[in-house]
Write a protein that binds this DNA or RNA. Structure first.
Lengths: 187, 187
DNA sequence: TTCAATGCAAACCGTTTGCAGTGTG
DNA sequence: CACACTGCAAACGGTTTGCATTGAA
């Protein structure tokens, strides 16, 4: 249950919070937008407003349960905080996301920050390009332009100029989150 | 003049384009939002609409003259493309931005990408924290909360939850852009 | 002379906020 | 029983778009 995790984080337990944490924990997608969380909730019985989703997610971020970032300007993307800081590889075409951690980069970056007198609290590295599959697809049908990504183009996709992903899943090393007694650094 | 640069990039020359490129080139700020560009234009004689600013900037990005990114979810920030890819250190408190390039990080990252089968086209590394000045200020008046940043708080600043910069200047090694015959890779 | 670029204003869309009602601690 | 949390709907703010007009090539 998500219950004790929320309390351990110093938050009041409520139904919306439990459900949202649950969704983040169980969803196939590691990275979800507020709207995706909201829609997932709709299928459920209880009525939970968008505002609540945003507020709860913000609370989670502040409490350190969840991390938030925006891949290249779109909307916010939320991700359960599994403790290990990591970076992202994103496919411009299909939206596939691959996570990776790298001490060398982290160290180098913090050296540089120190040299500039910065006290770093957070950082993100995101690389955009084509995943293996999409490289293949593109080569295969050698279509010069306007090839539709294999994963469904998603109906309400706004023309995001230049770059237009809309993340789908993918990540190595899956590990349960809610079940084991995870130690939340309460605040 | 910006004229031949725009043409070299394969774009039709128009007054708005010349002016906007000029502003990006001459402004003290290396990183400008569309709105900042727009406001800078207002002081000028000619009437140029916001839509045009957005459209022109988008064209510039597509032509490779300008690069665009969003520091942690806010709006887009545009920056004249000076050829050398670089990363950013951003002060959470005053918005100061420091740029740095690092081959080691770039190399490492592209190795990792290759290992995952990705063909990277672009990447960004941004680190958030406190610059030296802000660390000092905070220590000095040891105010636990709600300290106002030294650089004016900027009136229309939306409460961006968690993080709320609003960039001001700062960058090492200034180098003119428009004057020398820069080689634009036209497309 | 044609078709891309512009200006204006309205539309969009993700996110935030005000307010009255609800339910946790 | 107080006060944080919720739902709803309206507000917000950055960006995009439709359409008639202008102007570069």
């Amino acid at each position: 249950m998500a219950d004790h995790i929320i309390k351990q984080a110093g938050l009041r337990m409520t139904a919306p919070r439990a459900k949202i944490l649950d969704i983040l924990a169980r969803s196939g997608k590691r990275h979800m937008s507020a709207d995706e969380v909201y829609r997932e909730l709709q299928g459920d019985d209880a009525e939970i407003g968008q505002a609540t989703v945003y507020r709860v997610l913000t609370h989670f971020v502040e409490a350190g349960l969840v991390s938030r970032q925006s891949f290249d300007g779109g909307h916010w993307v939320f991700e359960l905080n599994r403790g290990e800081h990591h970076y992202h590889l994103i496919c411009d075409r299909c939206g596939r996301i691959v996570e990776f951690a790298d001490g060398l980069i982290a160290g180098r970056q913090s050296d540089i920050a120190r040299k500039h007198g910065f006290d770093i609290r957070n950082h993100s590295l995101v690389a955009y390009g084509l995943c293996r599959n999409c490289q293949r697809s593109l080569a295969r049908d050698a279509a010069p332009f306007d090839v539709r990504p294999d994963p469904t183009p998603e109906p309400g996709a706004r023309r995001m100029a230049i770059r237009a992903p809309r993340a789908t899943v993918d990540t190595p090393g899956d590990r349960p989150f809610l079940d084991p007694g995870i130690k939340t650094s309460a605040r």
